[in-house]
Amino acid sequence: MERVKRIFWLIHLSVWVLFTSLVILQLKSETDAHWPSTTAGFIATCLYVFYMHFYLLTQYSGSRKGRGYWLRLGGIALSAPLPFLLFHHKQLDFGDYSMNLVTTVPIFLFLSWLARVTENLVLNTIRKEQLEKQAVEAELTYLKSQINPHFLFNTLNNIHTLVYKQAPAAPEAVMHLASLMRYMIYESNAATVPLAREMAYVRDYISLQQLRYKNSPVVDLLLEGETTSCYIAPLLFVHLLENAYKHSPARLAPGDLKVRVGFQQDTLTFSVQNPIGPGAVAALEEPGGIGLPNVQKRLSLLYPGQHTLSIQNTGETFTVQLTIHGLHLQAHESNAHLLHH
């Protein structure tokens, strides 16, 4: 905001320098031997009227201009000749001067009003954008904070079961959880992360979930495209995958969960398909769950007009596909994109 105000003052200075130069050229061309004092008096009058009214409007900004404003405005108009009298060296031609005063004072009163209104409009627009940005950031922070407890509770329940059964896989599960929490707490604070890092997080999640199954890997994961050059908002995929586990049958055959991730040019596609378990058709969320509504809300804030989220239920399988268009290939470009929105 301060930077914008400094820009306005530079504009003021530039305009006054240009205006003064034009007045000097005009008076010098009239072969007036006393043009320096005449110029100084005229410019002083213009500056006085302009900025006295400018600050008067600042004082009465946002309120109804009552009696106090009009009295002060009248005082500015009546005292406008004083700066000219201070600089002028000779007896005035009050007739000519009065005519000039009648035209000059209203013009600079109007120009000061126009400048004040323009600055207020620009500053208020910037403040509104900043408030909207802060609101979006606060909402995104809230939505991300919902992810951590929900996922942590589910994972701790799984680890508790392993420890209770004294399963050899318990230490490995703790290490996977530590890796996941490190990413969620520290790395996911960035506006965007490399797609490759997000997929490493997804693989950790899949490995941890796989501890629940005795079969070969129940997830068939296929990754296509150059993931190191793509940057996305963190923690977008975990809920889609979590829903797939939650609403699948208790027993899954190898490859029952199909996860496909593709990145071509500037378009990212993520899809997950799972068989439908008993009771999963009626409700997509258990009590206290977050899931798809959270993902949809975050996507609307992060990628408005850039994404599609399609859901297909065939009665036997449930498929969710997310497509994000217009992704930038460099981290700094992606961050700039998110700030713009």
Score class of each variant (00 low, 15 high):
A77K: 02
K214L: 08
H160W: 13
A250F: 03
L223R: 01
Y201T: 01
K258I: 07
Y245G: 11
A170H: 12
T269W: 07
L301R: 06
S37T: 14
A173N: 03
Q264D: 12
I232M: 11
T31R: 14
V320H: 00
L78D: 09
S216H: 09
E139R: 15
A253P: 00
L339M: 11
A200G: 06
L162P: 00
T125M: 08
R197V: 03
S63M: 13
W16V: 13
D204K: 08
G326C: 07
T31W: 10
Y201Q: 03
T39R: 02
F50L: 07
P234R: 12
H341R: 05
S248P: 10
H239F: 12
V102K: 07
L121H: 03
A282I: 01
T45P: 00
G74S: 13
S188D: 09
S179V: 02
P149Y: 10
L82C: 07
E224C: 04
S216Q: 15
Q134L: 14
A77C: 13
G279L: 04
T323K: 14
P234F: 09
F151E: 14
Y303W: 06
A169M: 09
H340W: 11
L86M: 07
L177P: 05
R182L: 07
L240G: 13
G262T: 07
A80E: 08
I232F: 05
F237L: 15
S145G: 09
S112H: 03
L101D: 03
S37P: 02
N335Q: 11
A173Q: 01
